[in-house]
Write a protein that binds this DNA or RNA. Structure first.
Lengths: 220, 220, 220, 220
DNA sequence: CATGAATGAGCTTTCATTCAT
DNA sequence: TATGAATGAAAGCTCATTCAT
């Protein structure tokens, strides 16, 4: 749960960020196995020796940056969730827009997530999933349950399963944007380019139609 | 596109299966990078030398087993797609049931796919995604487009994007069953165990409700 | 001394030649270590198994083709040596012309020799040098000693050492024609291209001037 | 052109020499292909890992020691070439004496050269020949051309070709001293042992006679 | 006799981790 | 505390040789 050493925590912010950025970059682009600790140290302009004083192994460094990036995502989600006077539909669209923006600005973070997702390291996954997913699952479930109370959301669906499917749609969109296999797959499904702004609006419109039908009651 | 040597193709079925199983097992559980060719050979009770006569590199062996498993899935999908006199709804449910069954019987194959999904090996992904996804994307798009013609499927959605979302739901379900991070995530979303048969029916029912709303016109 | 098995000797000429050519080609171009027995078998359109029935090891095959090619060269030399009524100068020029011709026609054989020359395999070299060099050394020594008797050749030189130097000049020319390091070195020494016929005549003229001065008495 | 890493350059002299000696020893005795990097590391009492930090590949280590030995030879040659008030004859004899001395003191270096000479590695040879031969070719050509100006050297010969032949004689002598095939060949040509001092003087005398006749004008 | 699949030791190279300075 | 040189186990891959068919 605590992956960094006190010595790392005491470092000045600039140095910490350098290390974090270097690690995320390497892990996101190469994957856990192919990532190279010595290269991370070099990119961060510190020595391997120091890196090993800050994190006791390659795995710990990986877990640290994963944990970290989850916190960032959690924050954005929290803001949406707690917004008052917002319809379920608006909230969903808001999250969608956040996701598409994050995809471009923090592609490496998403890649890191994707990497984690397929990780076979069983000892990591249990712990991590608990930390990272508990919040978003509760968040989505709550939005839907509240929506059922107000009549916005279909009454006949299980909020937990629906939240799961909702997040699946979000996840798939995220992963499809950051390159690699799922990016190619996306292009096969949706011929047009992925990089244009107009396309973003098309994706949002179609995804909203899909989710409205799946989750919401007709609007009068 | 042809990843195995003729020498491998000529092998008797039992030996071929031994090798394929050993490779899938190793790749599915460790990932491409961490998988060990020498261990695969040992598990398959053949020599490394032989393995390298059958497949000219680690990558080729990986690509071979990926390709292979895609063929299996394609076959099932084809049967559903070509079934006459079947409603869109029934077809979707059929695929869903196939997926849940496959998850249990061929967990390693699914794990292999998941592994591929996060692969950063850019030269592989383009090729593979084309081989593996072209069929299913066309298949789903066709089902939906036909459904729009018969009035079963909502007229206001883009069949390509809808097919993409549909497959995303399927994919997420698959990956959530085979362990690792996404399995833990699933358990967080849907508290009850994953392994009971009753649960399967619950998942199917809820997923069908979700997809009906998302894709289909009301039935009268 | 006998590097091939009786079974090989009994083979029909065409098959023998195929094997010999394949072996010379491989050894000449890759060197002993890098040469690949399996590739030689493939090039010769026979099985490795057979190759190992014909020659009991890679080394034996190498020694066999070396031995063989020496016989070819010896034959040409013998003809020159035994020519009656020929001046020492003419004989030397004759050999020179043979060498330049051989360089083009049997480049692989020369390469093979060059390969042998640098061989560190001490157990091979003693034996081989005896087989291959005894004849040419005697041949040149005899030409020079006879020349001293007739007054053509300088009386003040040791025929053995002179024969050695003479052969060194020949050897260097040979090796410089067949590519690799010595070819590049030759080009650095003698800027003009190596491949033109006119150049051949230039090389012969200059080499003859050099050898005449070194070995022969002024002609009147 | 720079085959070693800065890290290697910074090493203390003793360690550098240990590594260089180990490498020269291995390459000279086994040849490039058969040489074993692990064995070199062990002989030098360092780890393979370190060796690979000092030289980024087996080839680079090979190129480094070749380059190194060429520098040594070049230095000696330069001294002779620049000596003032020395007749062409004296210069040639000086080089000859250097060669015979080097043969005993640096046999492994010469062996390394010989190994290179027969290398089929075409990408290395071009580069190396240029580095190693350009100097000596210019050096010999200059000596001869100057000699033609002073009347010491025959006016009727091409200095470039003559320099080439001169170096060939030197090269052959070198290679004949360091063992292997050419050593055996030398013994066949010149029966007496190679190892006695008197023999050195005999070789020098005979070689000088040969070269005087080939290159120089009669001394009045 | 011929075949060619099978073998596995052994090679070059990488990289997580340690530790003397 | 920071450094970065050193380590050496372990990986992918090759190929001379054997042997069942």
């Amino acid at each position: 749960m605590k992956y960094s050493s006190p010595r790392f925590d005491r470092l000045d912010e600039e140095k910490k960020q350098r290390i974090i950025r270097a690690a995320i970059d390497e892990f996101a682009n190469l994957g856990f196995e192919a990532a190279n600790i010595n290269k991370i140290a070099r990119k961060a302009h510190i020595s391997v020796g120091s890196l090993y004083k800050y994190f006791k192994s390659k795995k710990d460094l990986f877990l640290y940056v994963i944990q970290l990036s989850s916190d960032l995502i959690e924050e954005e989600l929290r803001a949406v969730n707690e917004a008052p006077f917002m319809s379920v539909e608006s909230k969903i669209e808001k999250v969608l827009r956040i996701i598409l923006r994050t995809n471009r600005q923090q592609a490496n973070l998403i890649r890191l997530y994707l990497e984690l997702t397929s990780s076979s390291n069983n000892d990591m996954t249990k712990l991590l999933s608990f930390n990272l997913e508990t919040f978003s699952s509760q968040c989505y479930r709550q939005i839907l349950a509240n929506g059922q109370a107000t009549g916005e959301v279909r009454a006949d669906i299980d909020p937990a399963m629906a939240a799961f499917h909702l997040d699946n749609i979000f996840l798939a969109l995220q992963y499809s944007y950051v390159g690699g296999y799922l990016y190619e797959r996306y292009r096969i499904y949706v011929k047009e380019g992925i990089d244009s702004i107009e396309n973003d609006e098309f994706v949002i419109a179609e995804t909203m139609k899909f989710l409205q039908g799946a989750l919401l009651n007709a609007k009068d």
